[in-house]
């Protein structure tokens, strides 16, 4: 049984699930005092992960960069309000996710129209790769997937068709590697909601992926 657990845990990205908290208190304290070097360190420490999470949720690199900037500006501005009751990691991601979801809701129509426009493109190679992947009974090779740009593009497209709620929870769990408790804290929802929402999100994604093969 423990082997199963370990095997499942190994599926989580290596460094993704570990919040960055080394010497974090002193770093935050220095940021509170307006130490620009500390602020810079804090941004460098979190920017890749926050940017990636935002990018996977909003789907646009420019918007992701803009939203990341807004997240850090807001985060530094409100750092005095951070009270150590949650981890700084959770608090920072909470700000990033809330900003991104708000942005996505405002831009919903534009995003759908861009998807409609993109749907006309030829995704045949990606569809073949996806069919092979889904029908292969062998364990998936993450490296092979990440090197297949078409497949990644198609997955991103399917992800983008999910609702913000489902997309967000999948990004936090499967891309950022948060555990259920941290997801619940970041999204300010209950643990049961996390379980049910995540189940529905994966199910929907699976349907979208399968439907893309039939097109």
């Amino acid at each position: 049984m423990s082997e199963i657990v370990n095997k499942n845990a190994a599926d989580v990205p290596a460094d993704a699930a570990q919040p960055i908290n080394f010497d974090e208190k002193s770093l935050i304290e220095r940021c509170r005092q307006g130490d620009s070097a500390a602020i810079e360190t804090l941004i460098l420490r979190y920017q890749d992960r926050i940017y990636n999470t935002i990018l996977k949720i909003c789907g646009n690199p420019d918007d992701a960069a803009e939203l990341s900037q807004d997240t850090f500006v807001k985060l530094i501005g409100r750092i005095g309000e951070f009270e150590n009751r949650s981890s700084f990691y959770t608090w920072a991601f909470s700000i990033a996710v809330n900003l991104t979801i708000s942005f996505c809701r405002r831009k919903q129509k534009i995003r759908f129209s861009s998807i409609d426009e993109a749907s006309g493109q030829d995704d045949s190679d990606a569809a073949v790769a996806l069919r092979d992947f889904l029908q292969d009974d062998a364990s998936p090779d993450p490296a092979a997937i990440s090197q297949n740009a078409e497949l990644c593009g198609l997955v991103m497209k399917m992800l983008d068709q999910l609702s913000e709620e489902h997309r967000t929870i999948l990004v936090l769990r499967d891309i950022e590697g948060m555990d259920y408790a941290r997801i619940a804290e970041t999204l300010n929802i209950g643990l049961g909601t996390v379980k049910s929402r995540l189940a529905r999100a994966r199910s929907n994604l699976r349907e979208l992926l399968e439907s893309s093969l039939n097109e």
Partner: peptide, 29 residues
């Protein structure tokens, strides 16, 4: 199927944040 779904998402490549994020944030501050 669920495991493949999870693998697909977790295998998506991680992008490096543009350097302008740090520059712009520091400039704004």
């Amino acid at each position: 199927e669920l495991q493949k779904c999870k693998s697909l998402l977790s295998s998506l490549p991680h992008q490096q944040a543009p350097s302008k994020i740090l520059t712009n944030v520091m400039a704004k501050i």
